[in-house]
Design a protein around this nucleic acid. Sequence first.
DNA 1: CTGTTAGCGCGTTCAG
DNA 2: CTGAACGCGCTAACAG
Lengths: 352, 352
Amino acid sequence: MSTLNDVARLAGVSTMTVSRVINDSGYISPETRARVNRAIAELGYMPNVLARQLRSKRTKTLALVVTDIANPFFTTIARGVEDAARARGYAVMFCNTDESEAEEIEYVRVLIQRRVDGVLLVPATDSSGSLQLLREHALPVVVLDRHVRSALVDEVLTDSETGAYLAVRHLIDLGHRSIAILTGPATVSTAVDRVAGYRRALAEAGLGAESEQILFGEFNEASGYEMTRRVLTAQPRPTAIFAGNNFIAFGAIQALRQAGVAIPDGISIVVFDDLPQGWVLDPFLTVVSQPAYEIGKQAAELMLERLTGDPPGEPRTIVLASELIVRRSTAPPRREVAATVPSLRAHMENPA
Amino acid sequence: MSTLNDVARLAGVSTMTVSRVINDSGYISPETRARVNRAIAELGYMPNVLARQLRSKRTKTLALVVTDIANPFFTTIARGVEDAARARGYAVMFCNTDESEAEEIEYVRVLIQRRVDGVLLVPATDSSGSLQLLREHALPVVVLDRHVRSALVDEVLTDSETGAYLAVRHLIDLGHRSIAILTGPATVSTAVDRVAGYRRALAEAGLGAESEQILFGEFNEASGYEMTRRVLTAQPRPTAIFAGNNFIAFGAIQALRQAGVAIPDGISIVVFDDLPQGWVLDPFLTVVSQPAYEIGKQAAELMLERLTGDPPGEPRTIVLASELIVRRSTAPPRREVAATVPSLRAHMENPA
DNA sequence: CTGTTAGCGCGTTCAG
DNA sequence: CTGAACGCGCTAACAG
């Protein structure tokens, strides 16, 4: 593998001249440039990024740490991050913590050792072990999607409280009075905030705490399934379910199907997070849609601003709005519960 | 950010001693080790991976280059690669070429510059521009999934020809006589081999070239949709479709639904590639399932053997078997014209 | 068991 | 416009 030195020797110049040609810095006479370029081509020379990074103390690499890489919400965020980063010449390392704080810290260690320039983090919990580690090593951080109480950092997230309020309000407007919320762990701000929005909507409608049905679980399908099973045996059985994220909704739908409860005839369901086009052929879920791509993009841009811009300044929090999209999984409650409706099954069998 | 030097000074030893403690190499007295470890903890020292890699000339990193990161077939391969690599202390860089040869070469350039230790490549086409580039820079390569004619390299792939043969034979056994195959570009070995298997099955059943309906397209949903639209207007209209991969099948299903053609009552469909559990609630597609995880795992292990083992040896080709899984998307044709063949019963009693 | 020397391949700094 | 010297942080190779 040839080096700067080989090129310099072949071209009859110093290594610095070659370096300048490659990085387009400083003035070079056209002839020398041509000669150097010829030597580069002849040798098939490729700069050693490691040496460059070691010397320049910048890797031009960001890391994005998410809690579930299989969730389209996070892959969409990832696309936003990558687009913004690549536009400025930065690479992105993707890391998946599976909602585990231990994994998160492990990854942060690796990222520090690899000397990434900055970390975009979706924290697994609201405790801040990894944030502290990052601060100790002076690594810039932007927190995404979830608020962290303890730390003063840049944050980009959506207004979960308002989103949840809109979703539940929609159900109330349809006439529902008994609504269950199935959400993630109480240690995660998005779960807590969505419950807050749920409560506000109920309270505003004059529905007291006695009509609350709040289940904290995990943001995954298994948990959604399990919580729904519990909801189905509750007395009184709710006429509507608010699923705290898309995977919880998957589990809920599966449980409802198994129990022969039709959507929306038997139970209405509204979901936080939309699914990207292509995941389902015929979107029928009523959802609160977050601007996932925009979250990723703005987070990356904020980071790059911190990295290249001179004024560090105060930590900034960017809150993006979410939007209620009404489709066919919500309807007014019915007295009698329909036994089976096959349309759901046809729908779920056809991914796209 | 503290360095080896800082640690050495604080512990009152040389940098080499610290290096040995960290890498667990050579003999160190327990006391010095303890002293060094204390210094490391006190400073929160984290080794600089860049410097280490530059010096040792090994990055302990593999790259996996695939043509479609959104395809579960490739993400499953990726899991196999990652598991095998991590078990031996290697990291993996994932790269997505979108079936573009230009992107592929671009990525290979980056990988050379980053000095990855080896490249696992799913080539976009059977031309070998990127393979040549890799060879020039003496980077070890293992080719996955697709055969490359021109090059002598290690390869790990499934037997597409036999898999396709089994799929089409299954359709023939069910009584189908008019079967269309929708597959990828003719520049990709998997597309070509699947056509070969399709032909062999037809020929063996005494069905001549006049009954062949072969469509080359792209391995994606849009192409599957478009090819199916064409198939639906063909004369005679086939009673069964063999989709060359899962995404082509998605497009086909969408087109069939739109045209009001039921599966399998109107048209049977068999697909190369299964979908992982969780993508669909109720698997109903008859598929040829490839051992995707195993492909990734074996490819990584072959690479690691080349990297650490001493004998380079001859290029090796590992061919894995695929398996027909009969579900509910295939059935005998309903036309009165098509008679049921006797071998059908034998087959149903003896599913492959 | 531990230290010394000598780079890995580049870019920064300063001097021509 | 170009070059010489130096060092980023670490480890291979050899001494002790």
